[in-house]
Simulated scan of single mutants.
Amino acid sequence: MNTTENPVYLRCKDHTVSGKTFSLIRDEKHQMLYTHPAPKADELPEYYKSEDYISHTDARRSWFEKIYHLVKSYALRQKLKYINAADPGKGALLDIGAGTGDFLAVAKKDGWNVNGTEPNTSARKRAGEKGILLFEKPDASFVEDKRSAYDIITMWHVLEHVPDLERQLEELKKLLRKNGTLFIAVPNFRSYDAEYYKEYWAAYDVPRHLWHFSSDAVRSLFSEKGMEVEQIIPMKFDAYYVSLLSEKYKNGKMNIFRAFCTGWLSNRKAARSKEYSSLIYVIKHQNN
């Protein structure tokens, strides 16, 4: 998926850091998009260096950030509910791309045996202040020792960021116990809010988001690795959050009323189509 021979779906601007324009290229085989040109490995960290990149900070400077953290606290409780339903025994949990460690802190308090990874240094430091030790990445020991036996692995809006998608999927299969459960949350470019905002849709977030998924794509990619999507859970708040940011990118300011209407309409349409702004995929090994 590193060629531009496939057709261009959209061209989008990086509104957060560089102001550069990137292309979204169709991958017809998997029914997904990918960002081109993808930043080189040594360039990618530069695109995360912004005080506005909220998942790497605990900032509450504006009403938008305060609302974000209020909704985030609700979302954390929901995520905990989902993993407890999958494994009431509260076994070993790995969160990949753990940010500032809030989800792992909630899970640890609830009795889970937690581990996590986060490539961003400042985010790892903030997590450490909350009593959550994060690794930069899963090293060889994650596969070779007991930590290869994870009952639950979570990636909350992280899979779209990974430079090597093929390698990440292989790694997930190795790290997950045969009867374990994988939770993957990603934006859905087939949602109504994505269609409405087009190149201004905030969840494209180029070039930090390297991959842009549909539900068909997630099913196809994991099926190729011997894993199966068993359930899809909507993330209804994302339509409002993404619409607010998209309004800012499109019109220069956050029009709360218009964003709310767009988010509401997106969720209403998704009640029939199932194409919500973001989706959580519950995945297991095939033939458990």
Rank of each mutant, 00 (worst) to 15 (best):
T3W: 09
E65I: 03
D95T: 05
G101F: 01
A271Y: 11
A202C: 04
A203G: 02
Q286C: 10
G89D: 15
G131H: 00
S214G: 09
A140E: 15
K274P: 03
F213H: 09
K125Q: 15
K72S: 13
A98C: 12
E65R: 00
G180M: 00
G180H: 02
V229C: 05
R167H: 12
Y34T: 01
R272M: 12
R60W: 02
H285Y: 12
M155I: 04
Y68F: 15
I283D: 00
V114N: 01
L10G: 11
G19D: 06
G97Y: 02
T181E: 03
Y196E: 06
D205W: 10
S62R: 01
S214I: 01
S23E: 14
R61Y: 06
C12D: 09
T121G: 08
K248Y: 04
F142C: 04
W156R: 04
F183E: 00
L44A: 10
L221F: 06
P7F: 12
A107H: 08
N115C: 13
E144S: 14
E166D: 15
A194D: 01
I256Y: 09
S278T: 10
H69N: 11
D102V: 08
D164N: 13
R126W: 04
S122G: 13
K269I: 15
A123P: 00
P119N: 12
D58C: 05
T4K: 14
